[in-house]
């Protein structure tokens, strides 16, 4: 860990795969969205898939990613230019696995949404496998008139398995100002992570973030969803759903139920 206890600040690992994938979405001039740049890299394969929304382009992260492995450094950049609508989802969960070295893996996602642009970032869960160590940073830069729906789910260990170490930071800036900054640190070596303040024995944790200018006009009231989830209006124009659950299935169920009344 670095001095501040963040997920950042690591030097680039000397071993393992270093890969960068890019998605860039622009308006196609006919009411739809074009993808002038769609480039996978390393273990990240990207496919343009059929979108239910005619205005949006849809990209699917394909395959059961057996990465990142310890020592890998994977970067995905997704940008929705002004007026573009992009939806990114996944076909299967991502597994964080132990590598040949003791070095942690790095997984960075940089999202950018321009004025009037829309981005749905809805990957499948990240599963922290026993013995793995992954540092993930999801960052988003939004224009004031941008819209974002972002889901981030973490599962601590496969069924019945101990968790690996998973440190993840979600930082969202809007118009250059901080909107949301959250860092989670779970698994062996993370102090107090399984106690009554942090996870309390739950093995799946997720966040669903919805940002849009509409949220400034009519902020939702905070809302408790059962025993282990809550919908919270942020100080800025966004709403965050935070949920913990015994497993990935029940986590998704809660986040999906929240999506019905949080979306713009």
């Amino acid at each position: 860990m670095d001095g501040a206890g963040g997920c950042d600040g690591m030097t680039a690992p000397a071993t393992g795969v270093s890969a960068r994938a890019r998605i860039r979405a622009v308006p196609d001039g006919r009411g739809g969205t074009a993808l002038p740049s769609l480039a996978g890299g390393g273990p990240v394969a990207l496919r343009r898939t059929r979108s239910a929304d005619p205005a949006a382009a849809r990209v699917t992260l394909v395959g059961a990613m057996s990465a990142p492995l310890g020592g890998d450094r994977i970067v995905i950049e997704a940008r929705a230019e002004p007026g573009a609508a992009l939806r990114v989802d996944g076909s299967a969960a991502t597994l964080a696995l132990p590598g040949r070295t003791a070095e942690p893996a790095r997984y960075d996602v940089h999202l950018q949404v321009g004025e009037g642009g829309r981005l749905h970032w809805l990957p499948e869960p990240l599963i922290s496998v026993r013995g793995s160590e992954l540092r993930q940073h999801l960052s988003a830069e939004l224009s004031p008139g941008a819209r974002l729906v972002l889901r981030d789910e973490q599962v601590l260990g496969r069924a019945g398995e101990e968790s690996g170490r998973l440190c993840t930071r979600l930082s969202v800036r809007r118009g250059g100002r901080p909107l949301l900054d959250q860092q989670l640190d779970f698994g062996p070596g993370a102090p107090g992570w399984d106690g009554g303040a942090v996870l309390g024995g739950h093995r799946a944790v997720g966040q669903l973030l919805v940002v849009g200018p509409e949220r400034a006009q009519e902020p939702l009231p905070a809302r408790v969803l059962g025993d282990s989830a809550v919908v919270t209006p942020l100080a800025g124009p966004g709403v965050l759903v935070t949920a913990v659950a015994p497993d990935a299935l029940r986590l998704r169920r809660v986040l999906d139920s929240a999506l019905t009344f949080t979306s713009w």
Partner: peptide
């Protein structure tokens, strides 16, 4: 760059 360490249950149970 300030730490942003957070605890899901503290957020959930506060509400």
């Amino acid at each position: 760059d300030l730490p942003a360490a957070s605890a899901p249950l503290l957020e959930i149970t506060a509400e």
